[in-house]
Design a protein around this nucleic acid. Sequence first.
RNA 1: CGGGGCGUAGCGUAGUGGCUAGCGCGUCUGCUUUGGGAGCAGAAGACCGUGGGUUCGAGUCCCUCCGCCCCGACCA
Length: 574
Amino acid sequence: MLRMSSLFLRTLRDDPSDASVPSHKLLVRAGYIRPIAAGIFSWLPLGVIVLRNVERVIREEMDRAGFQEVHFPALLPKDPYERTARWDEYGPALFRLKDRKGSDYLLGPTHEEMFTLMVKGEYSSYKDLPLNIYQIQTKYRDEARPRSGIIRGREFVMKDSYSFDVDDAGLEVSYNKHRDAYISTFDRLGLSYNIVSAMSGAMGGSKSEEFLAPCPTGEDTYVLCKSCGYAANVEAMVTKAEKKSIDTPPQIEVLDTPNTPTIETLVEVMNKKYNANITAAETLKNVLLVADGEPICVLVPGDREVDLKRLEANLVGVKELRLFDDEDFAKRKEFVKGYVGPQDAKRFGIKLYADPRIVIGSHWITGANLQNKHARYVTHGRDFQVDGFVEAAEVREGDSCPKCDTPVVIDRAIEIGHIFQLGRKYAEALELTVLDGQGKSRVVTMGSYGIGVSRAVAAIAEQTHDDIGLVWPKEIAPAMVHIVATGKEDLPFTTAEKIALDLESKGVTVMLDDRKEASPGVKFKDAELIGNPVIVIVGKALAEGKVELRIRTTGAKSEVLLADVIKEVLAALK
RNA sequence: CGGGGCGUAGCGUAGUGGCUAGCGCGUCUGCUUUGGGAGCAGAAGACCGUGGGUUCGAGUCCCUCCGCCCCGACCA
């Protein structure tokens, strides 16, 4: 039983000035966490209980799926991470340190290497697989910008699991087992979420999905089709290319368009000077970039910006991507800033990549590669050929769903889980092989699956809080029932104590506000702020043999007979 | 890393060059009070982030560094 008379807890009346998102404000105000440094927090007693509750739910679901728990150190030697090149690739986000002998160590940002090496050390036969194994660990990433309290910290708790299989079919099975386990986990955690297709990104591998908890303060943007359920991270959103009917356009016509370095000015001049009656969507934007040192040109409709994240995620094999700067334009005089067009790409020796909207046969108004001149009727397939199509343009609300054509909505969310089929990248780098039935050596294929444990605490707080405080689901709350005793007589206190003991004997966890010195108002405010799902008030109504029952989620209030309180509370917790 | 903002008591804040740094919450003591962050009386608690400078005089102006927050870049 949590007794507030002795609980290490101090609630704050004001929001901390350095917090901006609700979960951060409320968790600090209600005494769950305290800030230590940027992106680093202490967990006070209430916070520890909530964090452990989330861990417990995750453990139970992992164990139910038949996965086994291990525990690695957070402090790790450099060597395994050098063998997979991540010592270098992880860059400044890796917390590095040296021991007294000067050897390099790191604080684990994620543990693929350790799991792979562990399995390599114990297993060598296909008969040992499949294997699914997990840990719950504190992870460290020296984020360039920690933000939003515990949503994105530099130290955080994560559940990470890994699957090991002989072949792709096995990997698919392990992947789906994890997917199912995640669904039951997040359901129990009381989170609403969408499962969206994601890019496997820098980690390599193929299939990848994210569990996103919708919330205005989330950092991830995703698209959702309310008609067919298609959901994707904006980076992974596939463009439905409009199959517009295409007539035979006239030959290219070069036009004088003075002072039109932007799409906006171009449209204005076209409409005024040439009575063209066009919109930006009929112009072609030619964006010059440098991809791993090589200049490329990306074509998008003029009414859309290039989404660099999307582009980078979809340009396979490109490690570094940046826009042309003034220096680049100075070096390549053939590219006239503001008047670039694709029709001379071959001559200029530059690769062209088109957004899928630039369909073959479509014609565009675009730069003429001459100062103050544009060209119209520039036709894809006739006047220029591209080296490939790539998802480059920004995604907008109302864009067509690639599956069913319905306009999609765009929403923000917190990434609470990520599952993906890693493949053989780590197994190859660390030579994790098993002998198959024919006695031949096979590289193991892996899956990697993460849940942000501490982040889930924040996500739940974000999704369930209200104006007056936190509201926890019963499995996660510090206690299922918050009992408040009011008045200065002993009776409410002894009665509250008895109710608390009775509830505990039924397996209900209880927080008891047995503070004699605090006024009723203080106790009510604290109860609401702390956010246990059911509140029982033992006070005024006791004269009629009743107590008050409040449901934190709905705000419902009722008076119940003392004799019925256990029954009523149990019913409310159903 | 670029841009912006902010560092005054545990928390929230006032203090635009001039006396001993003010207020609210919280804390402590006493009395009173007990259904919505109670009242009265008293008390403790501040290296005004750091270092340097300007000035007769700096919380206040200038510079340095440190820290924190926000936007962006970054980000399994």
